[in-house]
Design a protein around this nucleic acid. Sequence first.
DNA 1: CGGTACGTTGAGTCATATCAACCATAGTGG
DNA 2: CCACTATGGTTGATATGACTCAACGTACCG
Lengths: 244, 244
Amino acid sequence: MHYNSRDDMKQQEIHVPLCDSCSLESGSIFKYLTPDEVEALNFEKDFRQYKRGDILYQEGNRISGFFCVNSGIIKVFKTGFDGKEQIIRFAKKGDIIAYRSVLSNELACTSAKVIEDCQVCFIPSEILISFIKTNPAYALELLKLACHELGEANSFITDIAQKTVRERLAEVLLFLVNDFGLDDEYFLNISLTREEMANIVGTATESVIRLLSEFKSDKLVELNGRKIKILNTKGLEKISNVFN
Amino acid sequence: MHYNSRDDMKQQEIHVPLCDSCSLESGSIFKYLTPDEVEALNFEKDFRQYKRGDILYQEGNRISGFFCVNSGIIKVFKTGFDGKEQIIRFAKKGDIIAYRSVLSNELACTSAKVIEDCQVCFIPSEILISFIKTNPAYALELLKLACHELGEANSFITDIAQKTVRERLAEVLLFLVNDFGLDDEYFLNISLTREEMANIVGTATESVIRLLSEFKSDKLVELNGRKIKILNTKGLEKISNVFN
DNA sequence: CGGTACGTTGAGTCATATCAACCATAGTGG
DNA sequence: CCACTATGGTTGATATGACTCAACGTACCG
């Protein structure tokens, strides 16, 4: 065996992040662990890399651990009756996914797919459970996280049930601005297909296309393929009727 | 002062339930507490009674504790942009409400209103937090509860986003059957206004009325004012496309 | 008896989904 | 190199589910 192929060289360059520095700089939930616990975590974790389109886990399966995102973007979605995806949330640096199924001890109710090439750590369930048992402050932070997500889910339910597609699309754009930010040219720092946008908003792809081009006519956004430039945040807020 | 009016007599008859028996028979989350903790809970709790229409708490407010339901039914809802209620969940015997805001340390994102006269205990936040800190098994159960609710919220989001009003109404009926059961004449053990049904499904009152009478024509249900008799569960399942 | 809340029905409108066609781009394989 | 295919984006035409508005009936309550 020889280890000097182009690919192997590349592999060797990869730097597996340490949990202590990562959790601090990403502000992940693990910053509430004791140094000993972080060390244990660092030992147990399994560092992995995925490319756009890869699937981290799929609904209906039993999950033996959860993922902590170090870089990249992942979409978490649920597949509806006719196979249409409903995007529930995104995960980026510092976020953890699949913890819901681990903690509720249920089968995964969502799937996770890579949107932007990512590096994640897989962490076995047992270690999470053991932290909860030995570190109450950490348990409380996890509860805080879960309950916060629950609040967001409640808002989402109300929005989808009551707002029009137009209002929701504007709101989703603002949400993306808030979550991923804009680059120095005001382009959204996340690139989604029109279909993916539709699967967040809960509408048809064609509707997203039509409404986006309306927003363009109204000088709210500029479109350059998948790159979306945000021109008028206030205008989008007005359309979306956000104030909760 | 004289204490022998009709009302006072009635008051005296009221039996304040003990947490240990109540938690066992209702299967509430408190059954995971130690005997000492249950005793502390029993001491700290504040027993209250509410009538239909009463409000337990309102969104936007800071909450100093949460509620454990002993009897009756409560609706938990969120008020949308135009004042329309979106019902998020119901609470009945053994359920706890408002724990989300307590644990996430956020303002209440929902309101709670009595649907069927109820008896509840109000429990100060501090005692819940202290249990989490001293009883890891209990913390884990709370996490399980929150994560389970999160899973239900995800399903709800997908349904509202993808299913038709007709499908959702059928699904809501089945959900109510499952949650509240049927009496010996197959009538639903919960009585809601058409508007409330609409506020679960996420539609207009008139749409609920029209669809219910369609279901009646199709011999799926029988209607007697607010009492709904379920005739054909299989038929409703077929309409609702449930299999998750 | 008037008032209020709820339920019902009809008619008209509109937002959105659906269906279909077409274009652009990139990757594939012969 | 070209044909082939797949994927995603766009636009137009059409259909329709669901909302809105309005009127009216019903029941209960003080």
